[in-house]
Design a protein around this nucleic acid. Structure first.
Lengths: 85, 85
DNA sequence: TTATATTTGTCCGTATGTATG
DNA sequence: ACATACATACGGACAAATATA
C-alpha cells in the first residue's frame, strides 16, 4: 500500500503535510542523522503524489535545516536539528 | 517581440538567466523599489519560457532579497537591496 | 450579492540532461 | 550499457485571493 495519510483538501497543502510527516520522523529518530531520506521515487509512491510535490517537501526540510542534499546522491538527515519543540 | 535573449543551451539555465536579467533591471532602477515586477504571465511571454521557469527565477530574486511576493497581488521590488557587487 | 478578470499557489505528468555507481 | 537520483524545463489544470464592475 501507499498514500500515507495525505489529504489534498486539507488547508495545509500536500507538500507541507509531507514535509511535516518527514520532519516528525526525523525528530523521533526514525530517520537518524546521516542516514538518507527515502528517495523521491519512494516518497512519490508512499504519499501518492507527484515528484514535484515531493521535491517541494524536501525543499522545506532543507530550508528548515533538517536535511541536506547531495546532487546525484540523495538527501540526508542533518545532525544537530535542534528543532525546538 | 518577445524572448529577451534567453539561451536554453547556455551553461546558465534559463531560470537563472531570467533572474539575472531582472536583477539588473532592478539594480539599474528600471524597476524601482515598491513597484511591481511584471506578472508571471507577462514574463512568460517576454522570455518565451514556461511559467514554472519564471517562478523559479522569481524564487531566486526572493532568496536574494531583491523582491517580495504578495499572494494574489504580485511580486514587488524591495527597498534597500544592497546587492553588493 | 454576483460575476469576471487577474495573479499567485499548488499540483500533475512527462521529458531531457547530468552525475554516480 | 544500465539503474538510480537530482536539476531543469515544458505544458496543462484547478484553487484561492484580490480587485473591479
Amino acid at each position: 500500500m501507499a498514500a500515507d495519510e495525505i489529504d489534498p483538501r486539507a488547508p495545509e497543502p500536500p507538500y507541507r503535510q509531507i514535509a511535516a510527516a518527514l520532519a516528525e520522523e526525523i525528530n523521533r529518530g526514525v530517520l537518524p542523522p546521516g542516514r538518507p531520506v527515502p528517495s523521491e521515487k519512494e516518497l512519490v509512491e508512499r504519499f501518492g503524489v507527484a515528484r514535484n510535490t515531493v521535491r517541494s517537501a524536501l525543499a522545506v526540510l532543507r530550508e528548515d535545516g533538517l536535511v541536506f542534499t547531495v546532487p546525484s546522491r540523495g538527501t540526508y538527515v542533518r545532525d544537530q536539528s535542534v528543532t525546538d519543540d
